[in-house]
């Protein structure tokens, strides 16, 4: 009996600890004036909502979506190719490849991007969406390759062989047999790489040079400003898609710690 109550208390504490920091975010997004030491705002406002619907935020949302969708698509394409090698082949240098594909997921991009920024400037890629997409491949491609490599390892290649035996060409086999078999992993990979790109701040800042304005850049500026309502409203806008995506893929990921790896780094 005692243990059960202790457990309930523990669960209550856990839920409170997870949710408490989010509470002021939600309240501030609608707070008009909220003077110290009031625990609830004196006046509510829809200014936060107006701000989120403002042209600047809408266009940053579009830029964020464009970049994240492109990055996710490219990372999946490159990851499908690399994943096949990792999942289905035994070859020399496999450990080195694993290391190379793991390192960019773990070593955060700042240290690496400082060194190559000057080349992006030199070749006209700085300040462009293309440059930002390219640099965001660095954290996403290795992640996609690792996830899809695991999926390939569980793939029964006999299905492919049968299709080929029946006269299907390599491309057709790939599209009609391999992709459907990998579909669950592919969807998960696409959503998670989308999420990494969506949350990325420092690579976008360094390569986009402030001219490629994504939502995290607007949010960062808003956090620095004195307008907490604006920052909170933008914060909610940035946080909702990732949370929805994770709720969507959560069931699939249960028990797959490698998939969570990339997520912890947003």
């Amino acid at each position: 009996m005692n243990g059960r109550w202790g457990g309930r208390l523990g669960v209550g504490l856990l839920v409170a600890a997870v949710l408490l920091p989010v509470l002021p975010l939600v309240v501030w997004s609608a707070a008009g004036t909220w003077r110290y030491p009031d625990v609830v705002p004196g006046r509510l406002t829809r200014r936060g909502l107006d701000l989120v619907l403002d042209g600047e935020v809408v266009s940053a949302t579009a830029t964020s979506l464009l970049i994240a969708v492109t990055v996710a698509a490219l990372a999946c394409a490159i990851g499908l190719s690399a994943g096949r090698a990792i999942g289905l082949y035994r070859f020399r240098g496999r450990r080195l490849v694993q290391f190379l594909l793991l390192a960019p997921v773990i070593v955060p991009g700042l240290a690496v991007t400082l060194g190559i920024q000057v080349f992006f400037v030199r070749y006209g890629l700085a300040d462009t969406v293309l440059g930002v997409v390219l640099v965001q491949l660095m954290p996403t491609v290795p992640y996609a390759a690792t996830l899809l490599g695991a999926a390939y390892a569980n793939l029964d290649v006999d299905y492919e062989r049968q299709a080929r035996t029946l006269g299907s060409g390599p491309l057709r086999t790939f599209l009609t047999v391999t992709v459907p078999l990998l579909r669950p992993a592919l969807v998960t990979t696409a959503l998670l790489t989308f999420l990494i790109s969506w949350s990325e701040y420092i690579l976008t800042l360094l390569i986009g040079g402030g001219q490629v304005t994504t939502l995290p850049l607007l949010l960062f500026a808003a956090i620095g400003s004195a307008d907490r309502t604006a920052a909170a409203a933008l914060g909610l806008l940035v946080v909702l898609p990732p949370v929805l995506i994770v709720l969507l893929v959560a069931r699939r990921l249960r028990g797959r710690d490698d998939a969570w790896m990339g997520l912890a780094r947003g």
Binding site: V15, V18, L20, P21, V22, L23, P24, L25, V27, W28, Y36, P37, D38, V39, L195, W198, S199, Y201, P216, L219, F220, I223, R228, A231, A232, G235, V238, V239, P242, V243, I245, V246, L247, A250, L253, W260, L263, A264, G266
Partner: peptide
């Protein structure tokens, strides 16, 4: 599910949340 949702929160938003909670005039202080 609750824990997994926290994982999805970008660190940038996490920093904002902690700031609004723990700053001298933040929610905890109130």
């Amino acid at each position: 599910t609750l824990l997994q949702s926290t994982l999805a929160v970008p660190h940038l938003v996490g920093a904002l949340c902690i700031g609004l909670l723990l700053s001298p005039s933040g929610f905890a202080s109130r």
